[in-house]
Structures are given as structure tokens and as C-alpha cells.
Amino acid sequence: MSRSTVRTGSDTCAVFRRDGRGNLDAVGLNFNGWGRKQAHRDDAEVAWSVAEFNGIAFSEAEFVGEGGSIETDGDGTVLATESSLVNKNRNRGLSRDSIEEAVLAAYGAEKMIWVPGVRGRDITDNHIDVTSRFVRPGVVLVQLPPDDRNDVWARDARQQYAILSTATDAKGRRLQVIRVDGPDHVRSRSSTFVDLYLNFHLVNGAVITAQFGDARTDAAARRTLAEAFPGREVIQLDVDRLMGDGGGIHCSTMHQPVP
């Protein structure tokens, strides 16, 4: 079971964790304004404030990142883009190996799968949660662009798909990669628009995702998500105003397990 709130957001809020005995705590990822791209003094206080409000033990990770920069299967494996975390605007002076060690410690994980990502083209330096998402251990969704697109984001998505299609997880399982086709057209004319179905949020009994007005791909994405998450209703919302600013549904929410 989970509950969420849009006032904290996955990037600024704490990441909630359970240990093997079911105890709940929270870890902060030292939010620094997505690599000091904006004023963030108050935002940096969100993680510990939420933990304190809920009476949950809080600690800080040994790296700088955001909730949307790391995807976990909850069974020992995490995904991330190098462009976001192995970046001097967040983790100056730290090697990829050092960052990986810190991420694994914070998430209680055993294996990290890196994809190169896209550096310096958006505020997040290409968070993993817009393109590749775990369904459950051993199964991951990846959104691919129309065949006629060859921009930097399209090339990145295809690269993520190729890497994950040959990857194994912490338990040695070859990942099953489920393809989701992106829309051919969208309503928005914003240059920062996020046209991704996979920036979804899971709530009790449902998957909250976007629709873009492309009837064919909207319906196909809905079917794919329904098959990937049996027993959950797939709810598609017109969130063009949110996604027009470069964010999305998952960017604006954070899961919080019931104590």
C-alpha cells in the first residue's frame, strides 16, 4: 500500500525504505537544485522535514541525486543514467565506482545498471524515470520513439533499450524488456514537453499515467501498462500543463509506504 503527495515531489522528497523486518526509515539524496541550476535552499529541507513530520528515522546518502534519477526493483537492482549522477554539478570529485557504492548503500541494493544518458540538455541531466521503469524484479519497461525520430532523446531511448535488453539483475536474471511506443504527435508546442507514458505513478490499485491525444498510442500504452500491472486500473490524464514545463506525473509525486 502507498500514498503520495504532489507537494513534495520525487526529486526533493526523501526515499522511503524498509529493512528485512519491515521497519521504515527515510534517506535524503542531498538535493542541490538539479546540479545548482536553480535556487534550492528551501527545497533542500523537504526530505528531512517530511521524515520528521511522519516521525520516521532519517539519514543522508553519501552522494547527491534526486528521487527520479534512480529506479529500483526492490530486489537488489537499481538503474540510473551516468549523465545525471556522474556529473560534477552533483558529485564533483567522485568516480562512477564511488557513486555506485554510495547508491547501493543508500538503496540496500547489490547491483547497479548504468546507461549513458544525455548531459546538459534538460534540468535533470536525463533522469532514468522518464524512459525506463521497473515493473517488478526482472521486468522493465522502456519507451521508444517513432522510427522517424533521430534527435538526442530518441537515440538515448534506443540505447537504453539495447543496454537493458542484454543486462542481468542482481539475482542473475536476464531482464525482460517490454517496449512501449511513444506518441506520434502531441497537443503541446512546448520545446520542453515530456511526451512519455512511463513517467507514471503507482497508487493503491491503479497506475496514473498521461495521455497525449494520439488515440492509437494512448490506447496501446494503456493496454501495455494494464498487462504489466494486472489488477491495477490504468488511469490516463491530460497533464499537458505539467509536462509542458519539463516534468511529469512521477516527477511530481513520491511513494510513502504506510507505517
Rank of each mutant, 00 (worst) to 15 (best):
S2Y: 09
R17P: 01
G22W: 12
L24Q: 06
A26R: 05
G28W: 05
N30W: 02
R41S: 08
D42V: 15
D43T: 02
A44I: 03
W48D: 15
S49Q: 13
S49C: 04
F63H: 13
V64E: 10
S69Y: 02
I70V: 15
D73A: 03
D75F: 07
L79E: 10
A80L: 01
V86F: 07
K88D: 14
G93P: 06
L94K: 15
R96P: 02
R96H: 05
I99A: 12
E101T: 14
A102L: 06
A105V: 05
A109M: 10
W114T: 07
V115A: 14
V118I: 12
D125N: 09
N126H: 15
H127K: 10
D129E: 01
G138L: 03
G138Y: 14
Q143K: 12
Q143N: 12
P145T: 01
R149A: 08
V152A: 15
A154W: 05
S165D: 02
R173C: 03
V177H: 11
V180M: 05
D184M: 12
R189D: 12
L198W: 11
F200I: 05
F200D: 06
A206G: 06
V207P: 08
D214T: 03
A220G: 03
R223T: 14
E227V: 03
A228K: 09
P230S: 03
G231K: 07
V239H: 00
R241D: 11
H250R: 11
M254N: 10
P257R: 08
